[in-house]
Simulated scan of single mutants.
Amino acid sequence: MANVRQLLTSLQFADSAFPSGFYTMSHGLEGYSQARLVSRDGVQPLLAGLLLHSVGPSDATALAAAHRAAGDGDVELVQEIDQRLFASKLNAEMRTASVRSGHQLIDLGAELTDHALLAEYAGRVRLHSTPGCQPVAAAVVYAANGVSTRDSVASDLFAFSASFVGAALRLRLTDHRQAQAVLLETAGVIEQATEAALERDLADLGGCAPMADIMSARHERAEARLFAS
C-alpha cells in the first residue's frame, strides 16, 4: 500500500490543475461531437471504450513498461518504449498532443524532483533523442517519486478520464453533476484497464480503435477547433 507521500504525489500529478496541457485536449471527443456521433448518454460508453481498446493497450501499457524500466535504472529501455509508443500513434494530432504534454510534464517533473534517471531522460527529451510521450514521461516522474507501477497506471488513466469528462463539459455534452457520475461509473473500467496494462507484454503495445483514429484525422482538418486533439 502506498504511503501518504506517494499517494499525495500520485494525486498531484493526476490533478486537472497540474500544468501538463491535458486541459487543451479532448482526446478525440471533439471529433465525435463535430460528427454528431456522441450524445449526452454516449459520453461514458465512449470513454470506457477508449480506455479498454485504445488508451489502455497503448498509453497505459507503455507507462507500466516504462515505469518498471525506470525502476531498474534502464534509461535505454525507457527510450525504446517511448519510441515504440510514438510510432504506434497513427494520427499526427495524437502524436503532437502526447509529446507536447509529455515535454511539459517531464520538464516540471525534473524541476520538482532530484533524481538521476529523471534528469537523464529529461535531458534526452530536450535534445530530441527521444519523443517524450506523456505516458512515458509520467512513468519516469512517478517512478522517481516512489509511486508503485499499479498506482501510476491507475492515476494516469484517471487523469485521462477526468480530462475527457472536462472536455465533455466544455463541449456541452454533460453537466457538472453528470460528469461526476460518469467518473464514478468509469472507476471499474479504469481498474480493468490498469490490470490488463500491467499484464500485457511490451510486444503487444498498441490499441485498436479505428473510429477514434478516423475522428482524430477529421479533427486535424476541422475549420474550427476548441481542443488540440
Rank of each mutant, 00 (worst) to 15 (best):
L183A: 00
R124P: 01
S161R: 00
L90N: 06
L77Y: 06
S129A: 12
V136W: 13
D82E: 10
R126E: 11
A179K: 02
A137T: 08
N145H: 03
P135D: 10
G21S: 07
R150T: 03
A70N: 09
P131E: 03
A62S: 14
T24R: 13
P210V: 00
E80C: 02
M94G: 12
V136P: 11
A137S: 15
G71H: 11
R225S: 13
D114Y: 01
T174A: 13
Y121S: 07
V141C: 07
F13M: 14
Q12A: 12
K89Y: 07
D201V: 00
E199M: 06
A66M: 09
A217M: 05
R225T: 08
G56L: 02
A119Q: 15
S98A: 15
A196P: 01
S16K: 06
L8H: 11
E195S: 00
R221T: 08
R225W: 04
L51A: 05
N3G: 15
L7Q: 13
T194P: 02
L169N: 10
E223V: 11
D107F: 02
A167K: 04
L117C: 14
T194K: 00
N145I: 01
D156T: 07
T96W: 07
T96S: 15
V38K: 08
E195G: 00
V140P: 12
L173K: 06
G206L: 04
L117Y: 15
C133R: 08
Y121G: 12
G146T: 05
V78F: 10
L63C: 04
A144Q: 09
V4N: 13
H53T: 05
S58P: 02
A87L: 04
V189W: 00
L29E: 10
E80M: 05
E111L: 09
R177A: 14
H53Y: 10
D74I: 05
